[in-house]
Design a binder for these strands. Structure first.
Lengths: 213, 213
DNA sequence: CAGCTTAGTGTTGTCGATACACCTTTGCAA
DNA sequence: TTGCAAAGGTGTATCGACAACACTAAGCTG
């Protein structure tokens, strides 16, 4: 109506080898062609904002089945050289087990970048990523979102690594395990995982809180 | 660009006589003329989202100098019968001391309603208010936002009343005062307030954390 | 000055968070 | 076969945050 465009952008995190990583695409078209940016694009006629974020993410990077929640909306005039654009940013969490990426649509490439070594970014996407990190850290303290950053079965050491890397500090193994057990949101599967030449670790999964009865 | 309009809406709370209240306007024009709704309106060319929310609130209700922060963005297709509209909702907090309201612009009237006795609302504004209450309760636990619901000087009893009404449960006076003192975000002014025929109460204000030095 | 109304104050028990060190299980190589 | 390297797994003591709980103080009114 007032010549305003609405887009969504997704800040998708995973925990890589040794650091928190964010998913970026290389823009195939102007503006900012050749620059790295968050996956996202224009809201289409019949779809919800949530759907738009998931669709654009899948189109440009091939990632599906990613946890997504709304993050913040950015609409400063001048943030897009094409004209007035309001973007609804989403926070996404992907398991670190390396679902393959598949750049397509407006993306020339798609890659994970360590959050402490980001390239130059298009638009105000650096601000949006900073906002995402802040939210991720904050929410980790009171919500079990870290589970979205792991495959369906995982060891306690892996889970602790996720917390440690996001909060950027070392955690005590015994205290960590005690907390997790008290909250009771995960449960042991019977299975174990062997990691090379050391003692195997118990695998855990998210506990479903006694449906039915 | 894609025939999408962007608006802002403000969910402004205050603590009234005996309950949490939200500010509504009576819509002067279709759609939903005569219905109650949140104050808000279309984003204009050069302004930020924050500015738009403050401007629309001031235009329609006369309230200025209200604390505002972004809440959530609603964009489901069908939420506005005129066509596709995405609204960025804001959470607002006003002091309960009764700055007078002044309905104008698209508002035929402006009034405070108890959140437990809301009229029928336009659009999806009931959902937006529910979202605002949830955020207010959640944030109260870890951020000193209750101070925005009081005048610059206030008594501890008043502050406790604010917390109690928002959380909807009784709080222990001694424990409450201990917590507040420990957090150290407010300080005593020298002044006292007389409330009729009883002992006067000490007035407090927000402590500025030692600027300068 | 008696009585009403609101302001203001401390102690105790419980629970969650932190700090901290050793034994166990496996694979591999000497 | 043994011993060594590498990661898994476990318990206790201390401290600070939070909940429960009852009386005295100051001012006004009749």
């Amino acid at each position: 109506m007032h010549d305003i465009a609405v887009t969504t952008d997704a800040v998708v995190f995973r925990v890589g080898n040794a650091a928190l990583e964010v998913l970026l695409i290389e823009r195939a078209h102007p503006p900012f062609a050749g620059h790295w940016a968050l996956p996202g694009g224009f809201l289409e006629a019949g779809e919800t904002l949530d759907t738009c974020a998931a669709r654009e993410l899948a189109e440009e990077t091939g990632l599906a089945n990613v946890y997504l929640e709304q993050l913040y909306t950015f609409g400063d005039p001048g943030r897009d050289p094409r004209g007035r654009t309001v973007t609804v940013a989403y926070l996404g969490l992907a398991a670190g087990d390396g679902e393959p990426l598949d750049a397509a649509s407006d993306a020339a490439a798609a890659r994970w970048f360590r959050v402490d070594a980001l390239p130059a970014l298009a638009f105000d996407h650096d601000r949006i990523i900073a906002c995402g990190i802040e939210r991720l850290r904050g929410k980790l303290r009171y919500a079990p979102i870290a589970l979205h950053l792991l495959p369906p079965q995982f060891t306690l050491t892996e889970l602790q690594r996720v917390y440690g890397l996001i909060l950027d500090r070392e955690l005590d193994k015994r205290n960590f395990r005690k907390q997790i057990r008290n909250h009771g949101i995960i449960e042991a599967t019977g299975r174990q995982q062997r990691n090379g030449s050391s003692r195997p670790a118990m695998l855990y999964r998210v506990a479903v809180p006694a449906t039915g009865r």
